[in-house]
Design a protein around this nucleic acid. Structure first.
Lengths: 330, 330
DNA sequence: GCGGTTCACTGAAACGGTTCACTGAACCGC
DNA sequence: GCGGTTCAGTGAACCGTTTCAGTGAACCGC
């Protein structure tokens, strides 16, 4: 045959074995048929190079055996690391994830979440850009969703691994305060609903409690862009930074280097999330560690359980932050 | 309605408008029907909250409007950056990519590539783990594939952005040789078919030409694992490293730091690929730069063209390497 | 030898769209 | 007033599975 040769269908296998398509379908899934038939069908399928079409299967059965991973912003190195970790852990469970990047855009997040649902993923892991968006509730009705980072407002998720951001923020700000800093620039990722997120509000509250003089600046996470924003903050006289993502802190390093300002001598930086690279810089980035491996394990456990069709349940794990002191705070 | 309420089908829209399902299908895609009907159908669809089911659509039409991105190993920070870049560029084209990670495993690469094809992605971007694998040829028959990094052996791809690895390797080794290094450990990512890849062979050839004493060691790209391998190489007495991915070079930094060996004083490191973080380390990592933005642009242009159903064509862009000297070579 | 199970399998209807071949009406020039 | 186009829309087949409700045969105990 010269052509790409259309792939075999279940009917051809049925014809070849003298069975009905239904029987073949059952046999290939090891259901309701005799061992002997199963073997016969399997052989015929092999011979014809038959493999079930996942699209047709999804349409008929409503399931796919896949998992979706919707990342809020893949520009964040930490989210990248998380995505990779989740991918590997799913591989160990003989599954794989379709990874999508909402690019920090709530509208896109909504579109992609729906898309994934329509693709019939069996379950979804999401790191929400906008956890307060109303569509989550509806989405969770028909699809098990595991949220990482923040709980989804008003939604019956299948599981949550949330960060105790209040504690994390307190840890960071107290550390800065303890080192004598009073005026702090908070560099926070561009977000859907600033500053009404609990974490952001908490920054302000804690700052008040500790007598800190805070300025909140939103910053993108791509290194070049973050560097630019950090540079402007440096130009504006800021010398102490609390970055709501290590990625952004790297931008502060770069901007400080450009201006030949030393860390921690002249500039102080704190990160948030603890990306592996943070330990490699000099000085190492002092940051707040969330135990990425633990998060991956927990999220994957929940999502696999849900995707396997386990009874609905609502696990909730609250991650406790840990201060990772490395020397970037003067 | 209390239930999640099943979503509307095209037949309901047809009923509501008094048209046939076919007419609705055409109308919603702006085909073959009067403006007036289009408007009427659109309104009814809106009213009913109708949205076409992508799975059913894919089954019937064989197309999805999506693009697949199959990464050889997402543990490589550079590949992560590439994936993010491609995602963003596709977003600007009103498309999105399903990202999959082959995790450096050729068997998984094959499975996932097939999976993506079966999912009816309109086109595929791939950074092959094993560009010599025979299945690529077959895959390219039915699906436009754009390869990044290496050309796919014997396959009619829709486009290629290949790296001139010979030039890159020469650049790196000559630089090391020029600085007086004779004994060099080459840390290369775990690969399918070592060392028969052209790039790897070329390392050996060039090493011979330059009179270098080479030892090739495979290393994973996750920081912790790379650090371990680098540590063993250091323990074995190696002091000059050429790493076939910046990610691995980071492992050398970490291992050197653990042993309190200074870079570039006591240990020399060269990377390959130029990840943004490489400029942030101190000393900066001397590496070979491939112009990631250019690669992203080229690959996305090719893939969008192919996904739009453009006439088959075989663009081929060869990236030229550039030495990015930063100070990690003694 | 009879009702009742179980077993292995079948037929046909979904699943929710797209597309092909066709139709009736309107319109054209001549 | 007639053949030929174009236009807007229809009906039914089709995409390749799964699944539901049967069905006939074999086997059961009694």
């Amino acid at each position: 045959m010269p052509q790409p040769r259309k792939r075999a269908t279940i009917r051809e296998v049925a014809k070849a074995t003298g069975l009905s398509p239904a029987a073949v379908s059952y046999a290939l899934r090891g259901l309701q048929v005799s061992e002997e038939t199963i073997e016969r069908v399997r052989r015929a399928a092999e011979e014809l190079g038959y493999e079930a079409d996942p699209i047709a299967r999804a349409l008929a059965s409503g399931r796919t055996g896949t998992v979706g991973l919707l990342c809020g912003s893949l520009e964040d190195l930490w989210q990248q690391a998380l995505a990779v970790g989740i991918g590997r852990a799913l591989k160990d469970n003989d599954r794989y994830a379709f990874i999508l990047d909402a690019a920090g855009d709530p509208a896109r997040e909504r579109t992609l979440a729906r898309q994934l649902r329509d693709q019939r993923v069996d379950a979804l892991i999401v790191q929400p850009v906008d956890p307060a968006a109303p569509f989550w509730a509806g989405l969770c009705e028909g699809l098990p969703v595991v949220a990482i980072g923040d709980a989804l407002a008003g939604a019956r998720t299948a599981g949550e691994v949330v960060f105790d951001n209040r504690a994390g923020v307190t840890l960071a700000l107290e550390h800065l305060r303890g080192r004598g800093h009073r005026r702090v620039a908070v560099l926070t990722p561009t977000r859907a609903s600033t500053p009404d997120r609990p974490a952001d509000l908490h920054v302000l509250a804690e700052a008040g409690r500790l007598g800190l003089d805070i300025e909140v600046v939103t910053a993108p996470q791509a290194l070049a862009a973050a560097t630019e924003v950090a540079g402007m903050a440096l130009a504006a006289g800021h010398r102490a930074f609390f970055c709501f993502a290590d990625s952004i802190a790297y931008g502060v390093y770069a901007a400080a280097a450009e201006r030949e300002l030393s860390i921690p001598g002249e500039v102080t930086v704190m990160g948030y999330d603890d990306h592996p690279m943070s330990g490699l810089l000099s000085p190492g980035l002092t940051t707040v560690d969330w135990d990425i491996d633990g998060i991956v394990r927990a999220a994957v456990r929940m999502v696999v359980f849900a995707a396997d069709g386990g009874p609905p349940r609502h696990d909730r794990i609250v991650q406790a932050p840990q201060l990772r002191e490395r020397g970037s705070v003067g």
